[in-house]
Nucleic acid binder design. Structure first.
Lengths: 191, 191
DNA sequence: CAGTTATAGTTGCTCAAGCAGTCGTTGGGC
DNA sequence: GCCCAACGACTGCTTGAGCAACTATAACTG
């Protein structure tokens, strides 16, 4: 669904305010629609594949960000910062993932307030099982859809939009971005 | 937050599997990161502006899709199809918006199972208050960030990705897309 | 060193959303 | 005309997430 007729609307005029009835053709609206739909479509594909491996998008992002960090670990707060989850959100994801054996908590030696979330061997294994398929999905539905120049142009445009609109990601390192894959939804509320 | 250091990780090797430690540089990952972060950034900006007018992203999408439909109304099911909300989700959003006076339900004359969600005058007014600012946001954070050719290239790329990845939107009409603005999150689960 | 303030993480509460089940309605096959 | 499958909307239940309050620790200030 979601296809359907998607409204072959005859663009009727209304007594209220006829601006409203025409405004929807605005190229700006179309542009946003494209970006958002591309995102939604990719999310859907990715989620399906991740689910095959028993991971939600958020979990995948969490485990990914941990795995790429030194020692396969990150303090809860830093994890929150990277995942665009709130700290309480992180507490709970880590709860679930710890329960599932993918992660463990480890006390931070120099700061007794902090604790690390650490990927377990089992978590690494899960990630290794999941990643190749994930990359393949990206290739199949995204990067592989365009020839190199078109892709470069697309990424270039995206980068500029990202740099403008994304309140943070720009700050820390310049091309940090890799794999917001999960964030996506939540991100909205916080920045 | 979410900036922070975003990990200036020295890309340590681990005994588990060194693939994992390098894989994160993969350009495919970066590509997805850009798209998702651009989306997240724009969502955040848009949400902030919508909130000023007392609308959530979902509500904005709902009212927008209704307003652009003949008679400013749509059957609940069709609305669900267009918004990438489940039908029960639509029931509830419409509940809330009806409570807030933005929408009304109207019985469908020829099919007693169906009912229409209709935008009220107050709802139209709210939309009219909200839209100009919204368009301005799009301009400011998205389309205005790129010169015309770059924008065209970006949109072209997005369209191809969208057409490939978005399970539906392609079906009904070909450029239906306008304003998934809200969807974005949910979409994932359904397609 | 004492007292204050800031930080890290967790927990209670609320809310939005989906799924699955329900009820009424419709339409097709006989 | 009767029966049964399909459909449209709604409701109960569960889940995931954020906010705000709370606790313990750390850091600062005098």
């Amino acid at each position: 669904m979601s296809n359907y007729n998607c409204n072959n609307i005859p663009r009727v005029k209304h007594w209220y305010d006829e601006r409203v009835t025409n405004v929807f053709d605005d190229p700006r609206i179309t542009a946003v629609g494209l970006l958002f739909e591309a995102h939604a479509g990719l999310s859907a594909r990715f989620n399906a594949q991740l689910e095959e491996h028993g991971l939600s998008a958020v979990e995948f992002e969490v485990i990914t960000r941990l795995a790429r960090s030194p020692g396969n670990q990150l303090r809860m707060t830093d994890l929150a910062a990277q995942t665009s989850l709130s700290t309480s959100g992180v507490t709970r994801v880590v709860d679930r993932m710890e329960r599932d054996g993918l992660l463990t908590r480890r006390a931070c030696p120099n700061d007794r307030r902090s604790s690390y979330a650490v990927v377990t061997a089992s978590g690494m294994q899960r990630l290794n099982e999941t990643l190749p398929g994930h990359l393949q999905m990206i290739e199949q539905w995204f990067t592989g859809q365009l020839d190199p120049e078109a892709l470069a142009a697309l990424l270039d445009g995206l980068r500029r939009v990202r740099d403008a609109a994304h309140p943070c990601a720009t700050a820390g390192s310049d091309d940090v971005s890799p794999e917001q894959v999960a964030a996506t939804d939540n991100a909205s509320r916080r920045h």
